[in-house]
Design a protein around this nucleic acid. Structure first.
Lengths: 231, 231
DNA sequence: GAATTTATTAACGTATGCATTGTCAACAGC
DNA sequence: GCTGTTGACAATGCATACGTTAATAAATTC
């Protein structure tokens, strides 16, 4: 969670040093400025973040709990790589939980605002794909998935999904240009939105589950084929 | 799920003070020696654990990430209560993930040792129930569920399930004597074991999902009916 | 008497310092 | 030349100290 089980408290201005370090380091990892496998010492990170080791260590504890780094006493910390096996684990969990999120959203319905946001994400995915802007597509995809769990009525589910989604983020980014064009994904998302609109919880669950399962399998086999042992 | 996402590293002798504090406090919370709603200061906990505030705070960060406590600056830490709504959230997640664990176990099969342990748990549940020893029954039930995720081949799933199972632990214990006798549970577990033996992954998934769903609903409505706003 | 301001205090966030311990390297023995 | 040992070093785990800040109580004013 962290998130481990708790994540970035969105937006808030980060009052404590510990919180600032946590966000900065997580951001740096997600953006590959601290690449997988890289190796750091508490001292250099503390200096980098312009604080003492004490608050920094608390940030590291959280990052370790969330699976981003490994703290090896006397060896410093290491940014954990993502193996195909890791991705399989992550997608197996996301498949279950996101499908249930879609089901719950369909069951409870959405506020007009939330529905508009979801549809905007889908449209943005189409626009980005048509324009060949894969980064924009990935951002919209992410917005769609996060929007779904945001409104599923289960805080813990939301936190867990966001955590694992973040863990998979680097691998997704690095395979963006290697994977087939995600035209299927866009169709899938549209179908899920339709099921939600109709309030068909069963259908939403099934559609989203299948969507997640297929894209997960695609990504895992892509990583395996490429022989990417770590990302 | 800091387990945020990582949990008790079983057995190991707890090298660091921080680790010792984490284990001791978690144990105390699970056993209700630090009851829900209770309120502590860093100073008293540090004294209690015979260490300074520095390692203690690292333990608190982990416990907060895992959802056991809340850290309120200047207000001390508070052991979080479990509401019926919390239980609903937790069981919704466990239902999905444990069903998938059962499915994977059925698909991959178990070593003879692991299968023996699983069957031993089921038999112990029967014995305990026949003898009216509900605590022993709960222990065996827990052993069964943990055994399943232990061998499902997904470390992250195992960690997440164990974290939430631990979160629900207190509520389960307090309702042990209020709930109907778990004869159905024992039958369900037996059926799941049979499906695993036959390698019927689909069936194992469906059986375990239904088992978890029903026992979750029972527990949530029990808590609601009792008007237990917090445990 | 109530409300607002001020003063006090104590809990916390962070910095710093120290003792511990594992690592790495140099050296000696084989 | 290789292996085992010793020693220095450096990163860490933890304790301690300090400044900040927010909660509480007191005091003053309306």
């Amino acid at each position: 969670m962290s998130e481990t089980i708790r994540g970035l408290k969105d937006k808030e201005p980060a009052r404590s040093s510990s919180e600032r370090a946590y966000r900065a380091l997580k951001q740096a990892i997600l953006e590959n400025r601290m690449p997988a496998g890289a190796h750091f010492l508490e001292n250099e990170l503390a200096e980098q973040q312009q604080m003492s080791r004490t608050p920094l260590r608390e940030a590291l504890v959280r990052l370790e709990n969330e699976g981003f780094i490994e703290i090896r006493p006397r060896h410093g910390i290491r940014v954990l790589p993502i193996s195909p096996e890791d991705m399989r684990e992550i997608y197996q969990i996301l498949t279950d939980l996101e499908a249930t999120a879609a089901e719950q959203v369909a069951r409870k319905g959405l506020t007009p605002d939330a529905m508009a946001e979801l549809e905007a994400s889908v449209e943005e995915m189409d626009r980005a794909l048509a324009g060949g802007d894969l980064m924009a597509w990935a951002r919209a995809d992410e917005a769609f998935h996060k929007g779904l769990v945001e409104h599923c009525g289960n805080q813990r589910l939301r936190t867990v999904v966001n955590t694992f989604w973040d863990q998979a983020h680097r691998a997704r980014m690095q395979t963006l240009r290697l994977r087939p064009l995600p035209t299927q994904s866009n169709q899938d998302h549209r179908a899920v939105v339709d099921a939600i609109k109709q309030g068909d919880a069963q259908l939403a669950h099934a559609l989203h589950r299948r969507h997640r399962q297929l894209s997960g399998e695609m990504l895992v086999s892509l990583l395996s084929d490429l022989g990417l042992r770590q990302l």
